[in-house]
């Protein structure tokens, strides 16, 4: 068990996770820019005022970070709410860019995790799976032994790369987490009759606002819904078994990434597709694609 967790590995997985999460944050910032103020402001006309969402979220724990903390701190030094919200947006974007290039990796990862968590908790009524998975990724990135050998911190600033035992431990944690996620996701789907008769897949694709293709087009593939629906359940439930052996890993990884790619295209969930691709490649993909890596002692 000790060998399995701390056996040592290259830091390729960490490079993939860092760059992928950085890219995810940059896209999140760019895409949400137009609605950013309306999502978080207390001003008249925002969708659901921030204080209500935060009150609901903090029912469980008052320690959960939220945008109001930044606004209160900003008001203390004389900044308006609008200014603080744009500063928060800008810092999150900067943290994402730093992660992509690998500058100030640790600080950028901590800042990205904290600000992203605050943002999604303060807009919890507008959050969905993509935000949870980004949080999961940022949480592990923040704790992982940064910088990796592809980061500018290593090559330009000459910061030493961390040891391989820690690399393999955090990669194992991410791998196990993905296995739990897919297993329970697949198992709970199998409990519903809709995944056995194709109705769930049909409804997922025709449900507004995810109906990217009209029902008239989708109905041509009606005989595929049953095998595809069952295929998704089996792919997810058996993920913890078949993702480990090298012989089947490539098939399951390609299958699961194809599934997320199809979700992105057919339902318009591009950010969700990207984060799931990033997490899967970081956890299981870097060895398969034979990226050149450096194993450090």
């Amino acid at each position: 068990m000790n060998e399995w967790f701390f056996g040592g590995t290259t830091d390729n997985w960490l490079s993939a996770l860092r760059i992928g999460l950085g890219l995810q944050l940059v896209l999140y910032c760019i895409i949400s820019r137009a609605d950013w103020r309306q999502m978080f402001a207390l001003q008249p006309g925002s969708f659901v005022t921030r204080d209500l969402t935060e009150a609901l979220v903090t029912l469980g724990s008052a320690l959960v970070p939220r945008v109001s903390w930044f606004v209160s701190a900003g008001e203390f030094i004389g900044l308006s709410e609008a200014t603080v919200l744009w500063v928060v947006w800008g810092v999150l974007l900067a943290a994402g860019l730093c992660l992509v290039v690998g500058m100030f990796c640790r600080s950028a990862a901590i800042a990205a995790w904290f600000i992203h968590l605050s943002a999604i908790k303060s807009s919890a009524l507008f959050s969905y799976g993509v935000d949870n998975f980004t949080s999961i990724g940022l949480f592990y990135l923040m704790l992982s032994p940064l910088p990796d050998h592809l980061a500018l911190d290593s090559s330009w600033r000459k910061w030493p790369v961390k040891n391989a035992q820690l690399q393999s431990f955090w990669q194992r944690v991410l791998q196990l987490h993905l296995c739990v996620i897919y297993f329970f996701s697949g198992l709970t789907k199998l409990l519903g009759s809709g995944w056995w008769n194709g109705e769930s897949l049909w409804r997922a694709l025709t449900r507004p606002p995810f109906d990217m293709f009209s029902s008239e087009v989708l109905i041509y593939g009606k005989y595929l819904f049953i095998p595809l629906g069952l295929g998704i359940c089996l792919l997810e439930t058996s993920y913890p078994i078949f993702i480990w052996p090298h012989r089947t890993r490539r098939i399951w990884l390609v299958g699961i990434i194809t599934m997320h790619g199809a979700i992105a295209v057919l339902m318009g969930l591009y950010l969700f597709g990207l984060i799931m691709g990033v997490l899967n490649i970081a956890a299981f993909g870097t060895d398969l694609f034979r990226l050149r890596g450096r194993k450090v002692i």
């Binding site: 968590l117 949080s135 999961i136 996701s185 199998l190 809709g194 769930s200």
Partner: peptide
Amino acid sequence: AGIEAGYGYFAPNV
């Protein structure tokens, strides 16, 4: 850690 929600997306039915 982003683990306060379950993983039953679109499950058991959509």
